[in-house]
Simulated assay, not measured.
Amino acid sequence: MSFYKRKPEPSTELIQTLGKWILLVLEILIASDIMAIVATEPTLESVSVLCLVVIIRTIISLSLEAELKNEFPWQKNKI
């Protein structure tokens, strides 16, 4: 007889929903950063910082999307 109970696994649907909301928030943050640059006078420094932030957030979005689909781009052609 075991005295330890296994914790239930988190619901896959909950994880999928949470991941989709995180992706949506990342897209909104990218759009707000772009609008902030357009609303002010763009300088080389502000545009370069924006590019860096957009690249980082895009990488995070792509990796999160791949994790949610449980499929990475290089695994699509595997049978």
Rank of each mutant, 00 (worst) to 15 (best):
P8E: 10
P8A: 02
P8D: 07
E9R: 10
E9C: 11
P10T: 08
S11Y: 09
S11Q: 01
T12D: 04
T12N: 12
E13N: 11
E13G: 03
L14D: 03
L14E: 01
I15E: 10
Q16M: 00
T17E: 13
L18M: 15
L18Q: 15
G19C: 09
G19M: 00
K20M: 14
W21E: 14
W21C: 12
L23D: 06
L23T: 09
L23E: 00
L24I: 13
V25H: 10
L26S: 04
L26G: 02
E27G: 03
E27P: 05
I28Q: 05
L29S: 11
L29E: 06
L29N: 06
I30R: 01
A31Y: 05
S32D: 10
D33M: 01
I34D: 02
I34P: 03
M35L: 07
A36N: 08
A36D: 07
V38Y: 04
V38E: 09
V38G: 06
A39L: 14
P42W: 02
P42G: 06
L44D: 14
S46E: 07
S46T: 00
V47W: 08
S48H: 10
V49D: 12
L50P: 08
L50T: 01
C51P: 00
C51Y: 00
V53K: 02
V54S: 05
V54E: 07
I56L: 05
R57M: 00
I59A: 11
I59M: 07
I59N: 10
I60G: 10
L62F: 01
L62P: 03
L62E: 03
S63G: 13
S63H: 15
L64E: 05
L64V: 01
E65W: 11
A66Y: 12
L68C: 01
N70D: 14
N70H: 13
N70A: 14
N70W: 14
N70L: 10
E71Y: 04
P73L: 07
W74S: 05
Q75L: 00
N77V: 07
K78Q: 14
K78M: 08
